[in-house]
C-alpha cells in the first residue's frame, strides 16, 4: 500500500472492460436519446463553434501581449509601476469574471450612448454589438492571470545571462527580445497551456451578454426543443474535444522547447 503505484499498462484487462462499458453507454445514448435536432442546427453549431474559437484565440493573444508589460513591471519595474500593475491584477483576479462582464457590458454600455462624441464616432456601429465588450473583458481577465505567471517567469531568468548580454553590448531592448522574453516564455509555457484551457472554460459566459457562441446555440436548442440532456451532453463533448486539442498543441510546442 505504501509503494508508489505502478503505472498501468495501456491495454490492461480492466481498461478493455471499462472501454467496452463506456462504448455500451455511448451506444445506448446514440440509439435511445433524441439526436434528430442535430441536423437542423448543424449550421448554427458550426458558426457558434467558430465564434468561440476566435474569441478564445484573440483574447489569449491580446491578453498575453498585455500580460508582458504587466508581468515585467511587477518583476523588474520601478516601484510605482509595480504597485499599479499588482493592484490591477489583484482587482481583476479578486472579482468574478461574470460580474466584470456585466459591469463592462451593462455599465459601459449604458454610459456610451449618453456621450455624443462616441455616438458619432466610426466605432459606434461596433460598440452597439456585444462582441467588443466580450473580447475586451476576456482579454483583460486573461492578462491579469497570465501576468502573475509572467512575473514569476521574468523573475526566474538568471541574472548572469542578462549581465552577459549587456556586457556583449546589447541594448536594453535587444536584451529583452533575445534573452529575457524567450527564456521567460519557455519557463511559462507549461502553465500557459493550463491557462488557455481555463480561458476556454470561461468563454461560455459571454452568452449571458447576448453573444451567440457555441454555448448560446445549445441554449437555443434546449429552449426550442425542450430537450434537456442531449444538447448539454453534446456541448460537454465539444468542450472536452477542444480542451484535448489545446493540450495536444501545447504539449507539441513544449516538446520543441530548446531550453532544458
Amino acid at each position: 500500500m505504501l509503494k508508489k503505484p505502478a503505472p498501468i499498462a495501456r491495454f490492461a484487462p480492466h481498461r478493455i472492460i471499462l472501454a467496452l462499458i463506456s462504448a455500451a453507454v455511448v451506444g445506448y445514448m446514440i440509439y435511445f436519446l433524441r439526436w434528430d435536432w442535430l441536423a437542423d442546427y448543424s449550421d448554427k453549431i458550426w458558426i457558434g463553434l467558430w465564434r468561440t474559437v476566435w474569441l478564445l484565440a484573440l483574447s489569449v493573444l491580446f491578453g498575453f501581449l498585455l500580460a508582458l508589460p504587466l508581468g515585467l513591471a511587477q518583476a523588474n519595474g520601478p516601484k510605482p509601476l509595480a504597485i499599479m500593475a499588482n493592484s490591477f491584477c489583484t482587482v481583476i483576479r479578486g472579482t468574478p469574471l461574470l460580474l466584470q462582464l456585466w459591469l463592462i457590458y451593462y455599465g459601459l454600455g449604458s454610459i456610451f450612448p449618453t456621450i455624443p462624441s462616441i455616438r458619432q464616432s466610426e466605432l459606434w456601429p461596433y460598440l452597439r454589438q456585444a462582441w467588443p465588450y466580450a473580447l475586451f473583458t476576456l482579454s483583460i481577465s486573461f492578462a491579469a492571470y497570465e501576468a502573475e505567471i509572467m512575473r514569476g517567469a521574468f523573475a526566474g531568468v538568471p541574472k548572469g545571462e542578462l549581465e552577459a548580454a549587456r556586457a556583449i553590448g546589447m541594448s536594453r531592448w535587444q536584451c529583452f527580445r533575445r534573452i529575457l522574453l524567450p527564456r521567460a516564455f519557455y519557463r511559462a509555457l507549461p502553465t500557459l497551456g493550463g491557462e488557455v484551457v481555463l480561458q476556454m472554460k470561461a468563454t461560455p459566459l459571454v452568452a449571458t451578454i447576448t453573444m451567440i457562441d457555441i454555448y448560446a446555440v445549445f441554449s437555443k436548442v434546449r429552449q426550442d426543443t425542450f430537450i434537456t440532456y442531449e444538447p448539454l451532453l453534446f456541448l460537454a463533448l465539444i468542450y472536452i474535444v477542444l480542451a484535448a486539442l489545446l493540450t495536444l498543441v501545447f504539449k507539441h510546442i513544449e516538446n520543441r522547447n530548446p531550453v532544458h
Binding site: 484551457v197 476556454m200 472554460k201 461560455p204 454555448y215 448539454l232 460537454a236 468542450y239 472536452i240 480542451a243
Partner: peptide, 13 residues
Amino acid sequence: AVRAVPELVLILL
C-alpha cells in the same frame, strides 16, 4: 472530464 468542461455547462448538467 471535470477540468475540461466549463463550469457553466457542468452546473446546468
